[in-house]
Design a protein around this nucleic acid. Structure first.
Lengths: 301, 301
DNA sequence: TTTAACCGCTGCATTTTTTGCAGCGTTTCA
DNA sequence: TGAAACGCTGCAAAAAATGCAGCGGTTAAA
């Protein structure tokens, strides 16, 4: 990477927000880093950073430049991995920004891919919809997996998958032997709900918007795992999408039953990438495999 | 351009075909250049050049790399010009690979664009269809303008325009006062034709493929200008597409009359760029203006 | 078959560039 | 009001790139 140190340095400064902080991460002196920045600015003929009392921030020209730089760094990575392909190895690194609701789905997929390509490493990070898009934009994630997002400008959808909302309840619960659940039935019992920022909650809220019935959760949490465990422990109902359930599916003391589609419409999972970006080969192939698997499991949209 | 000298050097070596020749153009010693190449190869872990007795040639890895490098250099150019836009200037350079038949059309277009943007410079190069595509692929041209090409893999069409074949003849010619020309009529007189590699000739040949009449040119040339001038001088008929006629149109002693569409189908002019490339702003805008002008003159396809 | 012309590549001295240290002036926050 | 960050600069040391001379090999013409 010798021939693009300057690009890496600039990227580091942008991320760190100040030259001195970036210099620490890069293990060089702030002097050297500072002078590289000055050199680039002279080369371009315009400054790319605003100098603030607490550090630096990109100006307009800098925004243009940093996008080019990150694209360039990522593209070089892709070329390296294609070259590695030529010589027989298969390497790479795939980073994924993923909604909490979908997190349990990934481990087996990643494991399956790594079985075929042990040289490929992964980074999986929990991000809400907005943060997932931001991660695509600043190239900290190659792929994003989110549930029911608002439409996002830089987000280019690779595929979507329908997910009905399921009720999650203890096997001992009175409703546990139903084939489907009516929402009204459920709400006659105490329920545990995710917070309003989550897609599942949003679907339930909008389903009830014209109804006199209101959601009155006895437990509210931003952890799906907690909600699931609590539903079983206290014998109440929680709601989740099937992909978010642990791969073992229904355990001995827990069942998951779809809500009737007349009551609550199903939501959409989106897999996507940064608009216009060419993904590294490993990421592109993983996305491919994910697409196929999702379509197999949950059918075409 | 300090931070991408290595990229420029590699590109130069590829174009020159040998390190020593490239070093002369770059005004450095072959030593320095050679060592940069070796450094890059070590960095990548694989050679990118085959060493031949008379120089070097890219291997597979090198092909991947050079494409990335050229894309990267061109993209940086785009960023620079966008930054220049921000600061109020408007600069850039547009290179065009153009079939001979279309060459006379360009000067007024270029002049018109440069009137609005004096900072933008142009390079216009005569290339046949295959060479035009090659120029796009190796980034020596931003845009290509060709007539009736065979389908080309890396060529991404921006727009097309219909062009009927015209007969070009002296005003004194017996057919000069017709509204349209029948091919059979024309061929009763001596004709001057471009060589078989040109689209106009190709259209005429295919029009006669099932006919007993054959083309027997008394003059054959690969210069459209020569054909035009000769048609007038000897008082015979030549064939050309209207866009290739000098902008003054029909001069005092020359007329241009369309062939009847029943005899010879009209051909297509293609304007295109390298598939998947983001053009520099100046090139993109020029392409835009060209599109509009072509559509205005010759109508939608 | 010899010879001259290129080719890529290497050891070594030289030049150029980059880096680190110390320190300046300024702003923010406690 | 003092401590802590910040970006930036002069100067010397360290590192990297460059140029020169020359080696061994291949091609193509004499």
């Amino acid at each position: 990477m010798r021939h693009q140190t300057t690009l890496l340095y600039i990227d580091a400064v942008v991320r760190a927000g100040s030259i001195r902080r970036a210099s620490e991460m890069l293990a060089i002196t702030s002097t050297a880093l500072n002078r590289r920045i000055l050199a680039i600015e002279e080369e371009l003929g315009v400054p790319i950073f605003e100098r603030l009392p607490r550090g630096v921030r990109l100006n307009g020209a800098g925004e243009l430049l940093i996008h080019h730089i990150r694209n360039q760094l990522s593209d070089m990575e892709r070329v390296r991995s294609q070259i590695a392909d030529l010589t027989g190895e298969r390497r790479g690194h795939v980073t994924i920004a993923c909604s909490q609701a979908l997190l349990p789905y990934l481990p087996q997929q990643v494991a399956g891919y790594r079985k075929d390509h042990p040289g490929v490493t992964f980074g999986v990070f929990l991000r809400d919809r907005a943060a997932a898009e931001a991660a695509l934009v600043d190239y900290t994630a190659d792929l994003a997996l989110v549930f029911e997002p608002i439409r996002l400008a830089e987000f280019q959808t690779i595929m979507t998958v329908r997910q009905p909302v399921h009720g999650v309840l203890a096997r001992a619960h009175p409703l546990a032997n139903h084939q489907t659940l009516r929402l009204r039935e459920c709400l006659q019992y105490p329920v545990a709900l995710p917070t309003r920022s989550y897609g599942v909650r949003h679907l339930l809220e909008t389903a009830l918007v014209d109804s006199p019935i209101k959601l009155n959760p006895v437990v509210e949490s931003d952890s799906f795992e907690f909600l699931r465990l609590h539903a079983v422990a206290e014998g109440i109902i929680s709601f989740q999408i099937p992909i978010g359930l642990p791969p073992e599916g229904m355990t001995a003391d827990m069942v998951s039953i779809p809500l009737d589609a007349r009551d609550v419409p199903s939501g959409l999972i989106y897999m996507g990438q940064l608009r216009g970006r060419t993904l590294p080969v490993a990421a592109a192939r993983f996305a491919d495999i994910l697409s196929k698997d999702l379509e197999e499991r949950y059918g075409p949209t």
